[in-house]
């Protein structure tokens, strides 16, 4: 099989899928031309700086949907600081691996989380460093080079 059981589970039964109308931060990464777009919505408790709810919408392949789903699970209920340290590798490991040419999907999931947090910071005038400069998906990493 192309995908692990975990990937298939998250693809077939994605967690936290859907729109969130009252989101505190929304991040969208990828582009339709390349075949993947992830949009992530977060709800934040301002006092504790904790992500209380997450939703996503994804246009993409099985692994794009599965990595989105897994990433939402991994940051839900977590402090923002912890969400920001979520690496694509951690998402891949949580899914019991991805085929080599699908690794960019996990990069996209990591970037979607960061983009949502950046949007939240921007809306609330919270300063942040350049680690939140989000990938435009046209770089060598995403192109699989």
């Amino acid at each position: 099989m192309l995908y692990s059981e975990k990937v298939m589970d998250h693809f077939q039964n994605p967690r936290n899928v859907g729109k969130m109308d009252d989101a505190d931060g929304v991040g969208e990464v990828g582009n339709a031309k390349c075949g993947d777009i992830m949009r992530m919505y977060i709800k934040v408790d301002h006092d504790t700086q904790t992500i209380t709810d997450v939703k996503f919408n994804t246009f993409g392949c099985g692994s794009a949907i599965a990595t989105s789903s897994m990433a939402t699970e991994m940051i839900k209920g977590k402090p923002i600081s912890e969400a920001l340290s979520l690496s694509n590798q951690a998402v891949v490991e949580a899914l019991d691996g991805l085929p080599a040419h699908k690794i960019h999907c996990s990069v996209l999931a990591e970037q979607a989380v960061k983009a949502a947090v950046k949007d939240y910071y921007d809306k609330n005038n919270i300063s942040y460093g350049k680690e939140l400069q989000v990938c435009d998906h046209d770089c060598a990493h995403c192109a699989g080079e």
């Binding site: 899928v17 729109k19 949009r39 919408n57």
Partner: peptide, 9 residues
């Protein structure tokens, strides 16, 4: 799938 897709949205 369209329901899940930000492009469709």
């Amino acid at each position: 799938l369209r329901e899940m897709s930000p492009v469709w949205d």
